[in-house]
Every structure is written in C-alpha cells, then in structure tokens.
C-alpha cells in the first residue's frame, strides 16, 4: 500500500478546496440560507407542521442531502477530470500506485469536502430553526455513506466525461432533479398515490428518508431499506470503478 501517494493526492485535492474557499464554503452556505429564508420563513410560516415537525426543520435533512450529493459528485468528477483535461494524468499512470490508492485519494478528499459542507450547512441551519437530532450516530453514518458513494459516482463521471459539458450534465440533469423529487422539501405521503409509486423508483428517496429518520424519527420508507439502498449504490459504484481501472477505460490506451 502506497500511503504516501494516497496522502499526496488527498492533500493536493484538499488544497484545491481551500484555495477556492469562497466558492467551496460560502456558496453552499449562502444558498442554504436563501432556502431557509424563502421556504422556511416566507412559505413555511403558512405551512402546518409536517409529520409533527415544523416545516423549517423538516427541510434541513433534505437541504443537507441536496448539497452533499451535488458537492460530492461535482468535486470528485472535477478532481479526476481536470488531470485528464490538462494532461497531468500521466503522473498518476506512471506512478507506483494502484487503482485503489488513486480512488482513495480522490474520493476520500471529495467525500471529506462534501462532509465539511454538510456540517457547515447543519450549523447554518441551527441559526434559523430549533433542531434536535434523535439518532446522531445514524445521522453521521448516513452522511458518511452518502458522501462516499456520491464521491465515487462523481469519480466515474469524471473518468467518463470527454468535455466540460458532459462533466456538468449528470449533476445538473440527473442528481439535482432526483434530489428535488426525492422528498427533500416534502414528505412522500403528501403526494397522490400514483406519484408515490413513481417516487419509490427514485433511489434518492431512500437516502433522504433515512437521513430524516436520524433527525426526527419519522421516515417515508423503512430505515433498513434506506441503509440497503445506500449500501447497494456504494457497491455498484465500487464495481464500476474497479471495471474502469481493469480495462483502462478512457484513461489508458
């Protein structure tokens, strides 16, 4: 195991994050605050409690998930796409490292960044609403698993993308809609029965539901199912990443 290399990649990626600190931290904090102002205060004051929780508090887990998923995906995808784009990927390929070490460095850093952003958003949220977390350990576990699996997912996109457009495409056209439609801002039970069935095909529903359960003890789907879903997604991403490095897909002719 080449830990020096893992550390070098990880430090490098984290340095990139702190170099663009305004973009990295301020923008998620600002957008979260805006969500609270608009949904929590302006609209939320006209909405009754959802499942026994004030609407402002109800949307906190969904908001964190929205940011964490998009940040993990975009950070990891950009992290590996950029070396491909500027040609520095030659260094990774010629170094005595294996695929696991490369993934650990890039995905580990992207997961850390999105975890930090998730924490910052949570901290910001406490400024707007009263929050108690019923199952803190489960909350951290869900957050970690989500950061990790979506960072892996982003890594795959970064390898696959041939240009910046493709790089933006998946987070914009897939992740954001799935999160919005995955119950980030409402409970699935508020939908008409037909749409409820459709919603169960959206994998993000399980993540948000499980994460919200960790906060308030209520969920749209059983918690075990949520855990299973996130574990399944993680394994799927791992399998794809493994296949990519086995075949040298789009990085090694």
């Amino acid at each position: 195991m080449n830990w020096q290399a893992v550390g070098a990649i990880y430090r490098y990626e984290m340095a990139r994050f702190f170099r663009t600190i305004a973009q990295s931290f301020l923008s998620p904090v600002l957008s979260t605050s805006l969500y609270f102002v608009v949904f929590g205060t302006a609209i939320g004051s006209r909405i009754n409690e959802v499942e026994g929780v004030s609407y402002g508090a109800f949307i906190v887990p969904g908001l964190i998930m929205l940011s964490v998923m998009t940040q993990a995906t975009t950070n990891a995808s950009f992290g590996i796409y950029f070396p491909k784009f500027i040609g520095t990927v030659y260094e990774l390929l010629s170094a005595p490292v294996n695929f696991f070490e490369i993934v650990l460095g890039y995905v580990g850093a992207a997961a850390t960044k999105s975890l930090l952003i998730g924490m910052v958003i949570l901290a910001t949220a406490t400024l707007f609403v009263d929050l108690t977390v019923l199952h803190p350990a489960a909350m951290v576990a869900f957050l970690l698993l989500t950061c990790l699996s979506f960072a892996l997912f982003g890594f795959i996109i970064g390898i696959w993308a041939r240009n910046f457009e493709q790089l933006q495409l998946i987070p914009l056209l897939v992740v954001t809609p799935l999160v919005f439609l995955g119950g980030a801002f409402y409970s699935i039970s508020m939908l008409p029965p037909g749409w409820q069935t459709v919603t169960y095909f959206n994998p993000v529903v399980y993540l948000i539901s499980g994460f919200r359960w960790a906060f308030f003890g209520t969920s749209d789907v059983p918690v075990a199912l949520s855990l299973l879903a996130i574990a399944g997604f993680l394994l799927l991403c791992l399998a794809v990443v493994w296949a990519i490095f086995r075949t040298g897909y789009r990085i090694k002719p």
Binding site: Q4, A5, A8, Y12, R16, R19, E91, P96
Partner: peptide
C-alpha cells in the same frame, strides 16, 4: 495553480 514547491513534493509523494 500549484506552486513549484508543492508540485515537486506532490510527485515525490506519488512515488511513495
């Protein structure tokens, strides 16, 4: 955007 020193250190680390 990397500094020269960091760039050289990075490669050394990459090579274990």
């Amino acid at each position: 955007f990397q500094k020269v020193w960091d760039a050289v250190r990075f490669t050394r680390g990459l090579f274990g």
